[in-house]
């Protein structure tokens, strides 16, 4: 299958290792991967902060860049949720009928990574090896917008050597919330400290998730507290093999 990556702007800039892992994983599974260099951002930050007008050109840009892609994969549930929850409404409100039609045609082809693996490719065992104690944080968008359910967990359970520890209060927000963490830093910090406690209680070496946005926030807190727990995107765990292990 030819899979076109939407790597997302913050993975591109801040977490290139996640993108590399997605490429490695999908190629290992026998698919060809493409990355259109014209891609930028889905517009989530603008849209969610109230800059809906500024987000519209980003929607147009996305549709333009991915128009011909058959299967689009994004390693970020919140970016996929942005598209599924808001793109059609935005396109409708723009009054541009062509954009509305193109958006409607494009959306069913956009998949979050674990969705792609489990639903589209029918896989749970991706042949990964990762000999660590791991806990999984369910991001809010993965849980409530994409309704991923236990798909990420099913993938993790098949990873050789991986010991999966359940995180308490798995459905509770970590307090990131995009610009929320900047506009309400103190409340966000209070939410984070509860999440960190739950993570530390698992005694896991690694906390994983399908979103680097939450992980950036959780890892930032763990690093400040010198907790000795690291955080990494699920793609990196699934890409890891005995021959080429992730660190």
């Amino acid at each position: 299958m030819r899979i076109t990556l939407f790597i997302t702007c913050y993975n591109d800039t801040l977490f290139p290792e996640t993108g590399k892992a997605v490429v490695r994983l999908l190629e290992r599974l026998g698919h060809s991967v493409d990355f259109p260099l014209q891609q930028t951002c889905c517009g989530q930050m603008h849209y969610n902060t109230g800059y809906q007008q500024e987000a519209l050109p980003l929607l147009r840009h996305f549709v333009e860049v991915f128009r011909d892609a058959e299967v689009i994969c994004a390693p970020s549930s919140s970016c996929v949720a942005m598209m599924r929850d808001h793109y059609l409404k935005m396109a409708e409100a723009s009054g541009d009928k062509a954009l509305e039609r193109d958006t409607a045609l494009l959306l069913p082809r956009v998949h979050e990574l674990t969705e792609l693996l489990v639903d589209r490719l029918g896989l749970e065992d991706v042949g990964a090896y990762y000999p660590h104690r791991v806990t999984y944080h369910a991001s809010c968008h993965s849980l409530r917008s994409l309704c991923l359910g236990d798909k990420p967990l099913r993938l993790l359970r098949q990873v050789r050597g991986l010991e999966l520890v359940e995180l308490s209060n798995i459905d509770r927000c970590c307090g990131f919330g995009g610009t929320f963490a900047v506009k309400n830093p103190d409340v966000s910090a209070a939410m984070l400290s509860e999440k960190l406690k739950d993570v530390e209680d698992t005694a896991a070496e690694v906390c994983t998730a399908v979103d680097n946005s939450c992980l950036m926030h959780i890892l930032g807190g763990l690093h400040r507290q010198r907790a000795g727990v690291s955080a990494r995107h699920i793609a990196e765990i699934l890409a890891s093999t005995l021959e080429e292990p992730a660190l």
Binding site: F35, L192, G220, G221
Partner: peptide, 23 residues
């Protein structure tokens, strides 16, 4: 406006190579 972020969290520095450069 980002002082609130670093009050309780560290931020990983931007890596030298972006994904698109690597690609």
């Amino acid at each position: 406006m980002f002082a609130g972020w670093t009050a309780v969290r560290d931020l990983r520095a931007i890596p030298r190579q972006s994904f698109r450069q690597w690609w």
